[in-house]
Each structure stands twice: as structure tokens, then as C-alpha cells.
Design a protein around this nucleic acid. Structure first.
Lengths: 313, 313
DNA sequence: TATCCTTACGGAATTCGTAAGCATG
DNA sequence: CATGCTTACGAATTCCGTAAGGATA
């Protein structure tokens, strides 16, 4: 049994039981992968994959158990390397953060600036993606840290910690009929075309729920991935916008007016996600704490140790 | 990084930083171990061992962290193999139980008999040792299961689950002055020479505590490792014996008389110990449950998952 | 001086990639 | 017949043991 064999098994599973693709991803030859996997199966004394003729078509019962444990061994091995790096290259290395547009655009700039001042030698990588992609990057080990409002808490492999709560607001042009209304209601909103987030992003689910609960059918004419696109089209008069409150800046967004909407939609919790059982570099804890000061290293370590459900703010 | 290197590091630490001895134990050459360890250090970018001239004299700070994680990787790898075996050789394999004389002699025979009937193809190994040795065999992976009254709960690497409580009794020859006393007291006992367990065994600690709490100084003339030796010398008139109540059998021990002593000494808890994080074969759970029916597989798995303090009955 | 680690070197074993073969959809 | 896994074989690499060297207590 060696690490190479374990990596081959893991990658083959990740690539949907396609040996050729797994070999390609690991920059090696396909027959090599085939043979190594077979040797591992021989050594363990169990078939991992169900083969039909010369195709891999599934995991055997023992195979499922084996794959799970393979993942753990590789995770621990990765942790070992990371722990060594923590000493070998103190305060330098790479931090990969996966996040959504809203966070990258509005919450993270100040964090990134502070972080770079504190850790000038750390190579900071920001990956933008939708919440599902972020979760998958964390699970696959491509990102060390994920920040998103949706999805992260749905994966049991991840620890999703609440960073902060926020509400939506409604943005309209200054000359819009709703511009000077006192306390806007859902019934007011459905009279106009609506511009808001794509279903997978930034609390869109809470928006849909609120309308559905009142039996209202909003006319969403544009579902965007980012707040800036939404604001742009609202300024053009395409409709009224529903965006995260943080995305409205009175100074910058002179053409728009923001209406409180905290009473209309359930508030949202932005979470910081990390892979359970992963070893985190010291500067990763620092980044998290810069982003959400209550998420101290100690708290995170405790949460990791706990068998753990995700908790609420 | 490969498993061989990790095993070399682990064994070197276990052998007190003696490369030669580690190589010997792993049936390989000493230069091989030396080189592989160095290559691992190079790859990780940290020194694991402190070298003075050409001797290994300690672990570096990163080394301590590395060693800990090496242990985890190897443990997970071992678990993987065990899990595969669980499928490959269902209901066959090896179960190594480490235990003390008292357990082996009085509690385990019925368990072993039942187990062998249920799992005729499992190779059952019983290792006898003192509680500390038992704990170390568990930690070193030489035993799957430990049963003892002392020590197991002191190791944080072990999960020690209470199996049953028991008390001591006093045994005397039939013609002894204490033979017909109603409710024997500590003050009665100190008038005679005492024959009991070695300090590391079978609740001896509770015996000493009881006398010390009353300011009494018992005259222990023989400290034995097993109950049979104690009973033999009591029959010879060397003194009065204090043994585990289970060790007295009215039929077999005709020459002796047993006096209740549950009120004199704190009762003792015999525990089942397993290595935390170890994968247990199905028949291992069965053995434990035969020994202590309340320790079900489910309970054990829950206790393992918990970050876990050891608990009491 | 005995113990114990490192370095050097040659042989053995393992690993790996290319090429060819064959089953599936 | 295109895709995808297995088998075969030769080359390259890695691993390992013996022998020699040097440091420490």
C-alpha cells in the first residue's frame, strides 16, 4: 500500500470511475493507474470497483468503505505536510479563499488589505464561484477557506461558521414611485419588475420564500450573479432591485435610493467554511479572525474537535 | 513521502531515538532508516530530530508536531487495512486481548468459551501483563482490546469503558481468629500479616488508600501478581489474604473462608480499553459485548466519536 | 573503546510509460 | 468503431543492504 495507489483510487472516484481521466489529471499513464489500483485491491483482499467487462461501473460494498478511509488517510497525510510547512516557511505560503462576488466586492477588500499588510509573504489567491462550487473547492482541497451565504452548511464534510448577519434592501431610481415610500411592503414590490440575484446566490432563497409565503408572484426580469449588475439595470429603469444591504453605498450609488427591507425577508447569515479535519495554517486563522473577529482560533479548533453540527449565530 | 518513512520515524521515536534499534525492530538495515528519515525531513522542509554530532538526542519543535501527525496517518492507514479485512475475511482473523491474571483466570473463561463457539475461525490471542503493559500494548497496536482494573483510564490515547464493579474480600484459614468474626474492620486486619496484590494490580491502590485514610500501617508480607498465589500462601498460614471477591470460590477453596470486605475498601471498576480512533473488527465488538453486555457496539462507536473524556459507571 | 549515525556504492526490486489487445455501447 | 480497461515488455528510477568513515560518551 502506498500513497500513489490511494491517490489513484481517490481521483478515479472523483472522475466518475473514469481511469483514463484520472490518469490524465494526475499526469500519468492510464495503464499505470489501472495496475496500481489492481495491486491495492490484491493487497487489501477486496475488490474496490465493480467491473463490467473492461469498464468500471461502480463501487463494491467494501469499496465504499475503502474509499472513505482512503480519503481520511490522504487528508491526514496532507495535514502532516501542512503542519510541517507551518514551521518550514513561517508566515509565508499560499492561502486560497473561495468566495462569491458579493463578498469579494464588498466585505473582503478591507480584510484582504489588512491581511496583506500583516502577512506580506503569503500568496493570497481569491477564487470566485457560486456557493456550490465553493463548497466543492473546499472538499477537493483546492481552497482553504470558503465564504458564502448559501450552501456551505449543507455539506457534512464542511464546518460552516456564522460570520455575520445581514439583510436585503430594495434599490430604486430616485424618480421611482417607491422612492419616498415610508415602510415598503412585499405587495408594493410585486407591482414592478424585479431585478435580483441568481437562485444560487446571496440569500435569493429567502427572497423567494418571503414572496411564496404571502402567495405573491414576483416578476423577476433579471437574475444576476452580482450586485453591480443588478444596480446597473435598476439605474437603467429595468425594474426595482433587491440586493444585499452592504452592496448599497450612498456616495457611490448616487443614482439610486435604498429602502430598508429587513422586515420583508428573513435575514441572511454569511458563513466561513473550512474542510472538517483539515490542518489550517496560522495565517488562515488570522484571515478568518480579520473577517469575523468572534471566530477566534480557539473557537474554531473547538468546533473542529466537536463531532459537530453546524451552529447558528 | 511514503509509509515506510513514516514507520521509520515512528519506530525511532518508540525506541527512544535509537536508529539502530528501530532498524532492528523493523527488520531492515540501519543506514536505510537513516537515509529515509533524512529524505523525509528534506521533503517536509523541517528537521524532525535534534542531532548532536552523529547522535539523535531529541525531537525538534516541528518534530513533535510531525511525529503526532505521523502517528495519525499510520493509524488511519491501519484502519483502512482492517476495514478491508472486515470484508475480505469475514468472521475470521485475529483478536489480541491483553489482560491481567485476575481477569484471565476468573472473568474471561466463560467469555472466551462463548466467543470461540460463535467465531471458531477467529484466532484469539490472550496476552497477560500488568495494567501499564496492557495500556502500552494497546497504544502500540499490539493488542486490540485491553481489560484491567487499573491504569487504562490514565491514558488519553485510550478509551476506557467501565465493564463491571467489584469488591475485595478477605480470605483466612478456617482456624484463624478472624474466621468467624461478624463484620470485619480494618483495625482487625492490621493485627495480622497481610498477603495481597502487587501495587500495580487489581485494586491494590484502593487497599492502600483505605488503610492510609485510617492512619493504619498494614504489614504486607507478600505482594503477589495473582490471586492464586495469594490464596496458596494464606492456606500455608503466612497471613490473611485480601483478594478480589471473584477470586474466591467456596467449592474450590475449601481450605479458606471468605469475609465480606466491600465496606472496607473502595469498590473497583474493571474497564475495557481500546485505542482511540482504531477501527475495530466486528468480532471485537462481539467480544466486548459478551464480556460486558451493556457495552454495545453502538455505545462504543458513540464514545469513540466523542472528543471524549472517559466516563464512570 | 564501544556505540551509533552518516556517506558511498553496487545490486535488486519496483515503478512507469509505450505499444498492443480486447470488451463495451 | 470509438471509448476505455487490461496485458506485455523494456527502460528508468527508487530502494536497500554491505562496507567504510567519523563523532560521541
Amino acid at each position: 500500500m502506498n500513497f500513489q495507489q490511494l491517490r489513484y483510487v481517490r481521483e478515479t472516484v472523483r472522475q466518475g470511475l473514469n481511469l483514463t481521466e484520472a490518469a490524465h489529471r494526475l499526469f500519468t499513464s492510464q495503464p499505470g493507474v489501472s495496475r496500481q489500483i489492481k495491486e491495492l485491491e490484491d493487497e487489501l483482499g477486496v475488490q474496490i470497483f465493480v467491473r463490467r467487462g473492461k469498464r468500471l461501473v461502480g463501487l463494491t460494498e467494501p469499496g465504499k468503505a475503502v474509499v472513505q478511509m482512503v480519503e481520511r488517510v490522504l487528508q491526514e497525510a496532507e495535514n502532516l505536510k501542512q503542519a510541517a510547512k507551518e514551521y518550514a516557511e513561517q508566515d509565508s505560503g499560499t492561502l486560497a479563499v473561495a468566495t462569491t462576488h458579493t463578498q469579494a466586492r464588498y466585505s473582503l477588500p478591507r480584510v484582504v488589505a489588512a491581511f496583506r499588510r500583516r502577512y506580506p509573504k503569503v500568496h493570497l489567491l481569491l477564487h470566485q464561484g457560486n456557493p456550490t462550487e465553493i463548497a466543492e473547492m473546499l472538499i477537493g482541497g483546492e481552497a482553504d477557506l470558503g465564504i458564502a451565504t448559501e450552501a456551505l452548511e449543507d455539506y457534512k464534510q464542511l464546518l460552516a461558521m456564522p460570520a455575520y448577519n445581514w439583510s436585503h434592501c430594495v434599490v430604486v431610481p430616485h424618480d421611482h414611485p417607491l422612492a419616498n415610500i415610508e415602510r415598503v411592503q412585499l405587495e408594493d414590490l410585486v407591482k414592478f419588475p424585479i431585478v435580483t440575484y441568481d437562485p444560487h446566490f446571496a440569500g435569493r432563497s429567502h427572497i423567494d420564500q418571503a414572496f411564496a409565503a404571502r402567495g405573491l408572484e414576483p416578476d423577476v426580469v433579471l437574475a444576476a450573479i452580482d450586485s453591480d449588475v443588478i444596480k446597473t439595470y435598476v439605474e437603467l429603469g429595468l425594474g426595482i432591485g433587491i440586493v444585499a444591504a452592504v452592496a448599497y453605498d450612498a456616495k457611490r450609488d448616487r443614482g439610486l435610493r435604498a429602502l430598508e427591507a429587513g422586515h420583508l425577508f428573513r435575514s441572511n447569515t454569511t458563513r466561513v467554511g473550512i474542510r472538517r479535519g483539515a490542518f489550517l495554517r496560522g495565517f488562515t486563522y488570522s484571515f478568518i479572525e480579520l473577517f469575523a473577529p468572534h471566530l477566534t482560533r480557539k473557537l474554531i479548533e473547538t468546533s473542529m474537535a466537536g463531532a459537530g453540527e453546524n451552529y447558528e449565530l
